[in-house]
């Protein structure tokens, strides 16, 4: 039957399409991974190899793991990574909860002031914040949070952008699902848990990634807030590899690669959830 073959073709991929898809994937891959490869190869190059040449070689001639060893000797990687992880976890949980609740309320509930709050969120998103960093620091300091990891995490704990993304995801849920739940007498909380959440898991994983990377990669803000080196986050701590009078680009690259690993893990784990929106959610039935 034509209909079933079409449907079959839709779910799987014909050999010809497969070749085409892989060809395209490889083209994009070639465009995107250059910096990553360069960094990886630099971090594996031996001390006798030239790093900066007019024709960069991507294969180390004397591959070595020494640079990684030197990073771990120079910098208390585990302490710094632990601090970064604390900040990232704090920010991720804050956004997952705070942005979800607010996104749901703004997208799905009608209440006085809702539109006003939404407009303010958009407005703060477009007003450049470049000149406010010192004022931000003073706020944190007045809260008694200078030189603490909570102080580093706090301003990013509920990101306005993430609220907007969750708002868009909640808006995309078909109205009839919500209506059905209302008919069944579900209250706001039940509608959020049983109708909302199953349908926004994709976006939830996206804001988790954004929040994680934002917290993990931030440099200037933790530098300003933190004073005691034992509180340093990884990005700040890795600056020790870049000291006065000498900086070995191989070791710096190794440090960057180490900082990169958790991001790759978080991404690889979460990316499978991108697609588990409606297709496995309540709409299926």
């Amino acid at each position: 039957m034509p209909a079933t073959t079409r449907a079959y073709a839709f779910n799987s991929v014909s050999p010809r399409e497969k070749v085409l898809r892989y060809a395209l994937l490889l083209v994009v891959l070639a465009i995107t991974v250059g910096p990553f490869l360069w960094q990886l190869s630099t971090s594996l190059k031996g001390a006798g190899e030239d790093i900066y040449t007019s024709t960069p070689s991507f294969l180390p001639a004397e591959p070595t793991l020494d640079n990684y060893v030197r990073v771990s000797e120079t910098v208390p990687i585990w302490t710094f990574a632990g601090n970064s992880l604390f900040v990232a976890a704090f920010v991720v949980i804050g956004n997952a909860v705070g942005a979800t609740l607010a996104g749901f309320a703004l997208a799905r509930l009608r209440f006085r002031g809702g539109k006003f709050i939404f407009a303010l969120i958009i407005a703060t998103l477009i007003l450049p914040g470049e000149v406010t960093i010192i004022a931000q620091y003073i706020t944190i300091r007045e809260m008694g949070l200078a030189d603490t990891l909570v102080g580093v995490a706090l301003p990013g704990t509920i990101g306005m952008l993430n609220i907007l993304l969750m708002w868009a995801a909640f808006r995309a849920i078909p109205q009839e699902l919500d209506d059905a739940a209302k008919v069944d007498g579900a209250n706001v909380w039940q509608r959020l848990i049983h109708v909302g959440l199953p349908n926004v898991r994709g976006m939830l994983s996206v804001i988790t990634i954004f929040a994680f990377i934002g917290a993990w990669d931030d440099f200037l803000w933790p530098l300003i807030v933190l004073t005691d080196p034992s509180n340093y986050t990884l990005t700040v701590g890795l600056q020790y590899l870049n000291g006065a009078f000498s900086a070995n680009p191989r070791v710096i690259a190794a440090g960057t690669m180490i900082a990169f690993i958790p991001i790759v893990i978080v991404f690889a784990v979460l990316q499978r959830f991108f697609f588990r929106g409606v297709e496995e959610g309540a709409i299926k039935g």
């Binding site: 960093i133 620091y137 300091r141 200037l220 530098l223 300003i224 700040v236 600056q239 870049n242 000291g243």
Partner: peptide, 18 residues
């Protein structure tokens, strides 16, 4: 206390301002 090479002016500035 040793400060990282990058961002030193911002660090000193925030120290001085507070």
């Amino acid at each position: 206390l040793d400060q990282p090479g990058e961002g030193y002016s911002e660090k000193v500035l925030s120290q001085a301002a507070s």
